[in-house]
Design a binder for these strands. Sequence first.
DNA 1: CGCGATGGTGAAGAAGTTGTTAAGCGACGC
DNA 2: GCGTCGCTTAACAACTTCTTCACCATCGCG
Lengths: 125, 125
Amino acid sequence: MATTRFTEATQPSSSEFSVGPLELRPEERTALVEGVRIDLTVREFEVLAALAERPDRVVTREGIYDRVWGGQMPHRDRGVDVHVRRLRVKLSAAAPQWSFVHTHFGVGYRLAPELSDEGSLGQVA
Amino acid sequence: MATTRFTEATQPSSSEFSVGPLELRPEERTALVEGVRIDLTVREFEVLAALAERPDRVVTREGIYDRVWGGQMPHRDRGVDVHVRRLRVKLSAAAPQWSFVHTHFGVGYRLAPELSDEGSLGQVA
DNA sequence: CGCGATGGTGAAGAAGTTGTTAAGCGACGC
DNA sequence: GCGTCGCTTAACAACTTCTTCACCATCGCG
């Protein structure tokens, strides 16, 4: 990757962690895919973080809600869904060959970086 | 697909348990056979859980119904049967050499992982 | 062996969930 | 004060799952 080298200067804050090609920097509320920074809003980042804290685990909507907004999720609230969508849009824009967030019908979402089968091919129409 | 390694991070929730090669994670409504996730719907998982809670015991349809749907099973209801079937399909798809759910005619079902006799034979298409 | 009862199977429609888009609002910076 | 940005909410479309039904296979019993 053509990441500019900051010989030392770049001290990783203790809290940052990564899941596959995804790197999270909670202190900066910043995420990187394969080294490329993606611009997430605060909410988007929080949702991502909620999922990233339990990679490959299904996190319920309630769990995400509580982790991001705090408290009980109002019945039929769609906030989580909408933010997950925007997250997906940004993630796939930054790394089209990867799929990260998987839906578990009736339960919630799961974060797991997976290479889409069309990875080597040009790309979907 | 490229299986991503989740080095550690994944801390097991306290409630998960297993029966033979089968692992259940109630919080996530997720089941694994020999470590491989199988995609079960919520109902399917609940039925499996109802059986898994009493391994090798015959659980009556009424028992399963009450555990999954709650309340008295309507006379001649076939819901349990239908879901058991779909469960079987998915289980055997994930682990063809195993048979898990056994029918007890006139009574109910029993969960017991058993190696099918053709396990060693190469009968794979 | 024949019959009634029970379970297996496949399919269609109903019900429930999620995807997607856009409008309304408030906060912020200029 | 105005324009921009992000969050929330609503509405509709698309999709998945559940339920129900019909029909066939199998079981148990006389």
